[in-house]
Structure formats: C-alpha cells, structure tokens
Simulated scan of single mutants.
Amino acid sequence: MQEIKITTTLTCYDNIAELPENVQELMQSAVEARKKAYAPYSNFRVGAALLLENGETIQGNNQENAAYPSGLCAERVAIFHAGATYPGVKIKQIAITATSDHHVNKTPIPPCGSCRQSIAEYEMRQESPIEIYFMGGEGKIMKSDSLKDLLPLIFDKSYL
C-alpha cells in the first residue's frame, strides 16, 4: 500500500480592494450579475463573471426552477454562454460571488462539483489554466490559479 498526499495552495485576499485592478472590475461584474439571479426557491444568489482572452467579459447568474435539476448555476450559465458566443476563445479568469437573501455570507464560497467539472472541461480543452476568484457576499476572496487546485483528480476525456 502507498499513501498519496495531495496538497494545494490558494491565495487569500482580505477584500475586493486588495485584488489587482482588473480582477476588482471582474468581481464587481460578478456582484452585478448576482443581484439579477433568479433564486425564488433557495434565496441563495450567485453571480459569475468571466474574462475572455479577447477582452470580453461574460456574466452569468443562477437560474432556478421548481424542478430543481432543471436550474443552472451561475458559473455554468457564464461558461456555456461564452462557449456558444465565442467558441475557441480562452477563458482567463472567473470571478464568483454568492450570498443568501437572509444573511450575508462572509466566507468565500467555491464552485459546486458540477461547476468544477464544467470548468475542468474548458480548462483542459483550452490547454491553459483558468484563474478562479471566489467570495461570499462580502469579505475575503480566495484565488485558485487553476481548476486543478480545487479538483486535483480531474476526470477528463483522456479516460474515455
């Protein structure tokens, strides 16, 4: 038997003002998207903003449905829109913010498992890492240099 240890390193910023200027703008775009989320069931709003290699910013927010599996997370709304509108254009950065309508989440909230898998698909396809910044409604922001830091044992097309 062999034990394998997997470690990861994330960067933590105390607030939006500490982020690089371009990332501050991207996170503000994610906050704007979050405010427009359709979340009548969970009352949990998520916004995402992507910076593409061509300089375009794409927003997404969670879109719920009474039949829960029919809804879609903010990250996937943004990623799929980017893929449909700008096929082949690399995603450089993703900013994500999430909070409850009932209280302000101050802990950084990372992408869910389904979103991590979707981000992995795009990161592997473009053969370059995607920086991921995530926060709650306010407060600290975490930065991952690549999806591989959040999902180290990625399932990708090489297994098919």
Rank of each mutant, 00 (worst) to 15 (best):
T8I: 00
S70K: 13
Y41E: 13
S146K: 04
G47D: 07
I141E: 02
N105Q: 11
K106N: 10
C115I: 08
H103A: 01
G71D: 09
K148P: 00
N22H: 09
S158T: 11
G139K: 12
M135D: 06
I130Q: 03
M1N: 07
I58E: 13
G137S: 06
A66S: 09
A66N: 12
K92V: 08
T8P: 02
Q93A: 15
E32Y: 07
M27F: 02
H102Y: 08
P110E: 03
N22P: 02
I58Y: 09
T11G: 00
A49H: 03
I16T: 14
S118E: 11
V46R: 00
D14L: 12
I132R: 03
Y122G: 01
L52M: 12
I16M: 13
M124G: 00
A37K: 04
A84M: 09
I154V: 15
I16W: 02
R34A: 10
S158H: 03
I96D: 01
R45S: 04
L153T: 10
A39G: 06
K140G: 00
E123I: 08
K148W: 02
P69G: 04
V46I: 14
E138C: 05
R116S: 06
K5T: 13
K148R: 14
I79K: 01
A39V: 12
E32V: 12
K90I: 01
I94N: 00
S128C: 13
C115Y: 05
P40L: 06
Y41N: 11
V46L: 01
L153S: 07
N22E: 12
V23N: 01
A82E: 06
H102S: 10
Y68P: 15
A84C: 01
E25S: 09
I79D: 02
A66V: 15
E21T: 13
C73K: 03
I130C: 05
D101G: 09
L150Q: 13
P69R: 05
A17F: 02
K90N: 09
M142R: 07
E127V: 03
L150M: 14
E53F: 02
G139L: 06
I96P: 01
V46N: 03
P108H: 06
P40K: 11
F134W: 14
V77Q: 15
F80H: 11
L51R: 15
Y41L: 14
A67C: 03
I130N: 02
S128H: 10
F44K: 12
Q28H: 04
V31G: 01
G139F: 00
G55V: 01
G136P: 05
G60N: 09
G113D: 09
N65Q: 08
